[in-house]
Structures are given as C-alpha cells and as structure tokens.
C-alpha cells in the first residue's frame, strides 16, 4: 500500500492503494468513475482509454504509481456539460448501439483530434484502430470524428 495524490478531472485526490493497481480499477472502484470501461485488461480493445496529459492511454495497463503529477482526464471530465465537440458529434450522428465501448472511442478520438485537427479518412481509421466496437458502429464513428473536426461542413 502507498499513498498517491492524483489529479483527476481537475481535482487533486488522495488515495491509498497497492502501487501496481491499474488506473482503470482506481477510477472505477475507488473514485466511482465508472465511465472508463473494462473490456480486456491487456490494452487490446481500448474501452478503458483515458487521457494522461494530452495523450490517450489504456488505463488497464497504467499502474497508479506511474501517473505521478500528470493530469488524468476521464470521460466524465472531458467536458463540463457533455458538450465537447466530439461528444456533440457522437450525439448528432447517434453513434452508439450498446454504447459500452463509446467512452473509450470518444477519449481516443478527442486526443487524436487535438494532435491532428483535420485528419484524412485513413488517418482516422489508423488512429481509431485500437478501439474495438463489437456492435460494428465504425462507419458512424468515422462520420462523427469528421464532424467533430469540421462541425460546419457536416
């Protein structure tokens, strides 16, 4: 057990936990931030994607001890009122079916658009390739990412 001060969604919070605990379970079990989903536990499906600073990372493979001073953003903290351009585009396109993977998709997409605000289709596919959607909403996800990048053109 060790004590960590974590910056999560703009708030600093203290936690005492086994240092090897992945952030996925710290968020879900200790902070009740259940928007970050468990899908595979081995960084293969992307359901657990969060932002560490500006980067999209798989929280199931990120031990709490590796976070340090970096800002953690989860789907709950992506925007104040659920009005991040990516979230808005997701609603506009009505992307979700079961919806379980979508928080991870949105976290990957929002970090990607920050680094590449005007991506090509191929760049979107490549950036999103690590996020599995079992319901097969891929064509809508691509449409929503494009809409979020260019809200006026859609």
């Amino acid at each position: 057990m060790a004590t960590f001060n974590l910056k999560i969604n703009g708030k600093t919070q203290e936690i005492e936990v086994d240092p090897s605990t992945p952030m996925l379970w710290v968020l879900r079990d200790h902070f009740q931030l259940v928007g970050t989903k468990y899908g595979c536990g081995i960084a293969q499906c992307g359901a657990c994607t969060i932002h560490l600073g500006d980067n999209a990372v798989r929280s199931c493979q990120l031990p709490v001890s590796a976070v340090g001073e970096q800002e953690v953003t989860t789907i709950e903290g992506l925007s104040e009122n659920g009005d991040h351009p990516v979230q808005k585009a997701w609603l506009e396109v009505d992307v979700p079916q079961c919806g379980y993977c979508q928080a991870g998709q949105i976290m990957t997409a929002s970090a990607f658009l920050k680094s590449n605000p005007n991506p090509s289709d191929a760049e979107i596919e490549s950036a999103m390739n690590g996020n599995i959607c079992r319901c097969g909403t891929y064509t809508r996800i691509k449409k929503a990412v494009k809409m979020a990048a260019n809200p006026d053109q859609s």
Partner: peptide, 20 residues
C-alpha cells in the same frame, strides 16, 4: 435519437458492471 445517448457519451453509470 437514443434516449440513453447523453449518458453514454458522458460516461454515466448504465451497465451491470457499473453497479456499486
């Protein structure tokens, strides 16, 4: 539109695994 859409895109608890 999906009546749970907003909850899904903002990560609100909806699924069995989210029950606490």
């Amino acid at each position: 539109k999906n009546v749970d859409g907003k909850k899904i895109v903002t990560g609100q608890p909806l699924y069995g695994l989210d029950v606490q």
